[in-house]
Design a protein around this nucleic acid. Structure first.
Lengths: 158, 158
DNA sequence: TATTGTTATACTCTATAACTATA
DNA sequence: TATAGTTATAGAGTATAACAATA
């Protein structure tokens, strides 16, 4: 519980939030993940604004453009979103001509979401932007460390 | 763009979202961080319900109990929250007798947030719960990997 | 003038339940 | 009876601007 970086020349408490790096909270993996994700999300949203996309929509578009023909239920499960949220996300992308709903012939309740040509084109632009955004957010990591982080998160995320 | 795990005996597409592990999105660090954080947050919220706390409130309580006497502005910066959100979080905790506002004598605009005895007591219980929650969420990692993840996230989170 | 906390407000996101069509 | 998608709605979270007190 002693503050970090206290020197003889500066024995008053350190100004700014660096002071709080010393707390229990700042050592909790879950807190750090949430903060990192929140920052990354905010930065990506800001950069995607040029395409009138948010990270949420970009994620759906990405899966729609993957060729795997996910159903709405699968999108919801993969993105940790409620089915009703998927409806409005897909509605929006469909109204913009970026994705299409196709009823699954083997189960006519289910609708698979696929990107249109325009959707794929926009996705390619968006992907460059999000990659740039991630480069910014993860700039403090070496390529090897970034790969390590990716692999560790993959095992926690699913 | 070829699906994973396709065998001769199973050359139709794999059911379930595992099919989507093959996508670009599933390899994006930012997406994985967001999903991991979302899951961890949901699980911790569910477990903290027994103390009538949410992760947000727990975070404020933790910093209030740290002995570092953070101001509301510092809480907002550290937790990536708007000042007005801090007001209502602190209001709530204060109404429950868990934290107190103390006006900073060196700058009478600023209010430092400190935990009461009851707040510290509840925090100790809550901390055990969140540790258990993190143990669940991070169960797939070895202690060494967990430490690695913590250190990598720390460098991305701030 | 600028900053801290506060209030008010609008907006977005989230969670829930009920409904339909299919299975 | 159960499931995928849809709709409606209430609740929680977020973002913005304006204000009072203080610097």
């Amino acid at each position: 519980m002693t503050p970090l970086n206290q020197t003889a020349a500066n024995n008053t408490s350190i100004p700014g939030i660096e002071r709080l790096y010393d707390t229990d909270l700042a050592h909790e993996v879950e807190f750090l993940a949430a903060r990192a994700a929140s920052r990354g999300n905010a930065h990506a949203n800001a950069m995607l604004k040029s395409l009138n996309l948010k990270v949420r929509q970009y994620s759906v578009l990405s899966l729609a453009a993957s060729g795997h023909k996910p159903s709405q239920r699968e999108l919801g499960e993969f993105l940790n979103l409620d089915p009703s949220q998927i409806v409005s996300l897909v509605d929006d992308l469909q109204n913009r001509g970026l994705v299409q709903r196709e009823t699954d012939d083997s189960d006519r309740r289910s609708k698979t979401i696929v990107a249109t040509d325009a959707g794929i084109e926009l996705y390619n632009k968006a992907r460059e932007i999000t990659q740039g955004s991630a480069d910014d957010t993860l700039a403090t990591l070496s390529p090897r460390e970034r790969k390590q982080l990716q692999e560790l998160l993959l095992r926690v995320a699913f």
